[in-house]
């Protein structure tokens, strides 16, 4: 999981929605996705999702793991870890297996921790 945009993340990402782009509709992918622009509709990926601090999202989001920032109006579901950065202003429900919320983040919505999801440390816990 990446926590900041660097050259390596840019190269590994299957899709980059840059800061000067507006995407409307239902977007689905299999690779890592970086969103820095405007997104309206829905977004789903079986890999990881990065939402930048200046992004404006009006969409439901689903990913394996995610690091989110910016303004998000919509529900967020991750199968693994969800990291909410300090720049986040989220209006929507959250469904994930583990979470970290930075100081300063705003969250208006329900939070459901789903034990059946693929927790990133599940294998380690099972061994113990």
């Amino acid at each position: 999981m990446f926590t900041k945009i660097d050259e390596k993340n840019l190269k590994e990402a299957e899709t980059i929605i840059g800061p000067s782009l507006k995407v409307k509709g239902d977007f689905s992918g299999k690779g890592n996705i970086i969103v820095e622009g405007v997104l309206e509709g829905s977004l789903k990926t079986s890999s990881n999702l990065f939402i930048g601090d200046d992004a404006k999202i009006t969409a439901s989001l689903e990913a394996n793991e995610a690091r989110v920032g910016g303004e998000i109006n919509g529900n967020i579901k991750t199968h693994g870890h969800l990291e909410i950065s300090s720049s986040s202003r989220i209006n929507g429900d959250i469904d994930c297996s583990s979470i970290s919320i930075a100081r300063g983040a705003i969250l208006n919505g329900k939070c459901i921790m789903n034990p059946n999801s693929n927790h990133p440390n599940k294998d380690i816990k099972d061994k113990n």
């Binding site: 899709t15 980059i16 840059g18 820095e36 601090d53 200046d54």
Partner: peptide, 21 residues
């Protein structure tokens, strides 16, 4: 590839690029 000239935000110095396959 979509490239825009304005430079601000986290893409500063990298150019403002978007990419889809």
């Amino acid at each position: 590839y979509i490239e825009t000239k304005r430079r601000r935000g986290v893409f500063q110095g990298e150019g403002r690029k978007s990419f889809f396959v």
